[in-house]
């Protein structure tokens, strides 16, 4: 078969010159799909399927924006031969960063807390990353940097010729990625009709970037952060009480924080798959729960929910929280 790619991407025929050209933006947005199950009449909720990013999660956006930013600043690239990236990550950012950086020829070292499941650590290795597994703080201090962030920073400080740390918790490009892509996509896809946006908080980059862009278009758009209850077990997310690690979070950019008992992230994710054929991961389940909680208080004209990633890499977590899955017949 002979495929002719006339420019870098042919959006009509969906032919791309490279994965980098597939990364979403206003011309090539990730899909919005309506979710009906359990939504009260009078409210409309659309899920933005971020697992349709080339590497399977919303984090492609931040990872690429941070890498490009480092290249443009001369921190990575021909002027810094041999230099790679080191990043503390619990999964998705590391996976996107590892694959994209490896593709660009940069070595990658990921610092991962020991609580991160083996399947996610193996994905990082598959994508070419060298791994450091840290013991989590045994009795963490509120607001203090955890072990993974400190260790990644140590590599970057002690060996600046070998490593630069993008640092998703501080890097403005994490927020800008959403200001420049996710926000305009939502605005364009809803014809400017979006009334509510629901996002979870991890680094807070998504919620901050969306708020900056969308409120500049229409200050009445509500940005709602959905957080798991304290002591939660939802990978990639933070309760506001744990957000001290992020330098990006500005509470003024969030209209409301909805807290959801974290176990419901799992039950809701399973139900989304069974009722809507949406392969939503636990964080998406949590966000949908948050949107439903708001819909119970007020009609949602046109709500957009950021569904960060899919359930496929969380089967072990799902089994832990949904005992009805049983042992699926025991080990193969």
């Amino acid at each position: 078969m002979k495929v002719q790619v006339e420019s870098e991407r042919d959006l009509q025929r969906r032919v791309f010159d490279s994965v980098l050209d597939m990364l979403p933006d206003v011309d090539n947005p990730t899909p919005l799909v309506r979710v009906r199950d359990a939504v009260p009449s009078g409210s409309v909720l659309l899920a933005k399927l971020e697992w349709m990013n080339p590497l399977g999660s919303v984090k492609d956006r931040a990872a690429w924006a941070m890498l490009r930013g480092l290249e443009e600043a001369g921190e990575l690239g021909p002027s810094r031969p041999g230099r790679g990236v080191v990043e503390p990550t619990s999964g998705n950012t590391g996976f996107s960063l590892a694959a994209l950086a490896s593709m660009r020829g940069y070595p990658v070292r990921a610092v991962v807390p020991a609580k991160v499941p083996l399947e996610k650590r193996l994905l990082l290795r598959l994508a070419g990353a060298e791994l450091d597994v840290t013991n989590d703080a045994l009795c963490p201090l509120p607001g203090a940097e955890d072990g993974a962030i400190g260790l990644a920073r140590s590599h970057a400080r002690a060996q600046p010729d070998k490593y630069v740390m993008p640092n998703q918790y501080e890097n403005a490009n994490n927020t800008l990625a959403h200001e420049h892509t996710t926000g305009p996509e939502i605005w364009h896809q809803t014809g400017g009709g979006v009334t509510h946006v629901f996002a979870a908080l991890g680094t807070a980059g998504t919620a901050m970037g969306l708020s900056r862009f969308l409120k500049a278009q229409n200050p009445l758009i509500k940005i709602i952060a959905v957080q798991p209850s304290a002591g939660h077990d939802v990978p990639g997310l933070r309760n506001v009480s744990e957000l001290g690690v992020s330098k990006l979070y500005d509470p003024a950019l969030v209209d409301r924080i909805v807290e959801i008992p974290y176990e419901r992230a799992y039950t809701r994710a399973a139900r989304l798959l069974r009722r809507e054929a949406l392969r939503a991961g636990p964080s998406s389940g949590l966000i949908f729960e948050g949107a439903l909680a708001v819909a119970a208080d007020e009609p949602i004209g046109l709500g957009v929910m950021i569904f960060c990633d899919d359930v496929l890499k969380y089967t072990a977590s799902m089994a832990k929280h949904l005992p009805e899955l049983g042992d699926a017949g025991g080990p193969a």
């Binding site: 450091d132 840290t134 072990g147 400190g150 260790l151 140590s154 002690a158 060996q159």
Partner: peptide
Amino acid sequence: DVDPKQYAAGH
């Protein structure tokens, strides 16, 4: 350190 990897990474 709580985690001796920290010293090895830099001090």
